[in-house]
C-alpha cells in the first residue's frame, strides 16, 4: 500500500514538467517578432516609395496640397484592343486614336525655358545692365 502511494507521488511529479523559457515567454516573443516584421516591412515600403520615384508623383505630400487639385484627371483614352483581326479599318481606327493622344502629348513643351537662370533669379548682375 505504501509502495503504491510512493509510486503515485513519483509519477505525478514526473508528469508536471517544468515549462521551458520559450514556453513561459511565448506571448512576449510573438509580440517582439510582430514588431520586428512590421518595422522591416515599413522600412522596405518607404525605401521603395523613395527609390522608385513614387515620392515625386505624390502630390498629397505636405506643401503640394495647393496644386493637387490641378491634376489633370481627364486622362482616360479609348484603349486600342490587342485582339481581333487587323484590316485597313482597324489600322485607321488606331491611327485616329494615336494622333489624338500624340497631339495631347506634344501640346506642351514641358520643362522648357530657363527659370533657373541666375540672371532671372537676380543672383548675378544682369548682363544687359
Amino acid at each position: 500500500m505504501e509502495d503504491q502511494q510512493n509510486h503515485a507521488e513519483l509519477f505525478s511529479a514526473d508528469d508536471q514538467e517544468v515549462p521551458s523559457f520559450w514556453d513561459r515567454h511565448r506571448l512576449s516573443l510573438l509580440l517582439i517578432i510582430t514588431v520586428i516584421v512590421t518595422i522591416v516591412f515599413t522600412t522596405v515600403s518607404i525605401v521603395l516609395y523613395d527609390v522608385s520615384g513614387t515620392v515625386q508623383l505624390d502630390l498629397s505630400r505636405p506643401g503640394y496640397r495647393s496644386i493637387s487639385s490641378q491634376i489633370d484627371h481627364d486622362t482616360t483614352i479609348d484603349e486600342y484592343s490587342a485582339f481581333g483581326t487587323l484590316d485597313r479599318e482597324a489600322i485607321e481606327e488606331f491611327i485616329a486614336l494615336y494622333e489624338e493622344q500624340a497631339a495631347k502629348a506634344k501640346a506642351v513643351d514641358a520643362f522648357n525655358g530657363d527659370p533657373l537662370n541666375p540672371e532671372l533669379l537676380e543672383l548675378v548682375e544682369s548682363s544687359t545692365n
Binding site: 515625386q56 508623383l57 502630390l59 503640394y64 496644386i67 490641378q70 491634376i71 489633370d72 486622362t75 493622344q101 495631347k104 502629348a105 506642351v108 514641358a110 520643362f111
Partner: peptide, 10 residues
C-alpha cells in the same frame, strides 16, 4: 511637380 504628374500620365 504638377507638370511631371500630368505629362507623365499622357
Amino acid at each position: 511637380a504638377l507638370l511631371r504628374v500630368n505629362r507623365g500620365q499622357v
